[in-house]
């Protein structure tokens, strides 16, 4: 009886998505299609996969691709390990403390990427904060600017909020009595987290890792500002091909390879989610 009405409501609901849908088609799907054509276009207007052969047949480009994936994986894992306890803290706190913790987590997002990166350069630099302390302690100084470690730390800082907030929102949906049940059945708080809380928060963990991984794969400003000759990532390479070499077909091909890797990772993780999250 209520079906016609609800269908009409649905139709109206879909209609409301139209502006966003149109926007995405024009400014997101459109450029992707253009990008795809650009990468396979021959000089005389025919089709060719030469750009892809060039990218995937060259040891340098493959190494950059490998480094990009390794960096993104490392940033993702570090965000998960650091973010999970923080997500638990946020999910359990109430009132003013909760607001404060959330504010603390999202602060990095409120600061401009260039300013934030220069901040890290000041901290990591040869005569920066860390080295000043190392010197005071009479230890060997180390420079993190221009190294993968430094870049990784800077990226974790800004990507952590995505991990923390995804996990915290699923943790908040878990019935508190499940935890009480585990504890009264003899599980210590740590075992309760391992056997009950973590498996039930997998959905949030997967969302968080997908977000952080995809964002790391596409991030290049941090690498551009903090990196050196030995730290090259794929998106920065794309940027250079576009702006410095003006090789648009090759930049397009590299961009598509990047998108492809992220899509594969997403598919893998969603497959994992289907197996892991059974309700």
């Amino acid at each position: 009886m209520s079906r016609p009405r609800s269908m009409r409501q649905n139709a109206r609901g879909y209609l409301l998505t139209f502006p966003a849908f149109a926007f995405l088609v024009v400014f997101f799907v459109g450029p992707l299609i253009v990008n795809l054509f650009e990468s396979v276009k021959n000089e005389d207007g025919g089709l060719t996969y030469a750009q892809y052969v060039r990218a995937l047949g060259d040891a340098y480009y493959l190494e950059v691709l490998g480094d990009t994936i390794v960096l993104s994986l490392a940033v993702t894992i570090a965000s998960l390990v650091l973010g999970y306890p923080l997500a638990i803290a946020i999910a359990r706190s109430r009132g003013a403390l909760k607001s404060f913790l959330i504010f603390l987590v999202v602060t990095p997002l409120l600061i401009n990427v260039v300013v934030r990166t220069f901040g890290w350069m000041v901290i990591f630099g040869r005569s920066g904060f860390i080295n000043a302390i190392l010197k005071l302690l009479d230890l060997d100084t180390a420079t993190l600017t221009g190294t993968w470690t430094g870049i990784g730390i800077a990226m974790v800082q800004v990507l952590l909020p995505f991990m923390v907030l995804s996990i915290a929102s699923t943790l908040e949906g878990i019935d508190g009595e499940l935890e009480d049940a585990a504890i009264t059945l003899g599980a210590t708080p740590l075992k309760t987290i391992i056997h009950v809380i973590f498996p039930l928060s997998l959905q949030g963990v997967i969302t968080g890792t997908l977000l952080v991984f995809a964002l790391s794969m596409g991030s290049f400003v941090t690498v551009m500002l903090m990196g050196s000759n030995s730290t090259m990532v794929l998106p920065l390479l794309v940027y250079q091909q576009l702006n410095l070499a003006s090789d648009w077909p090759f930049a397009a091909a590299l961009g598509n390879i990047l998108i492809f890797v992220v899509l594969i990772a997403t598919a893998l993780q969603l497959g994992l989610a289907k197996r892991g999250v059974r309700r």
């Binding site: 049940a181 009264t184 003899g186």
Partner: peptide, 29 residues
């Protein structure tokens, strides 16, 4: 602590672990 008290509780929401089957729910404790 509660995990050492040997006191079992049946909760109002039952609080069965949704990611475990009946056997694993019983095996947990």
């Amino acid at each position: 602590p509660p995990w050492k008290r040997d006191i079992s509780v049946v909760f109002q929401s039952y609080a069965l672990f949704p990611h475990m089957n009946v056997r694993d729910n019983l095996a947990f404790g």
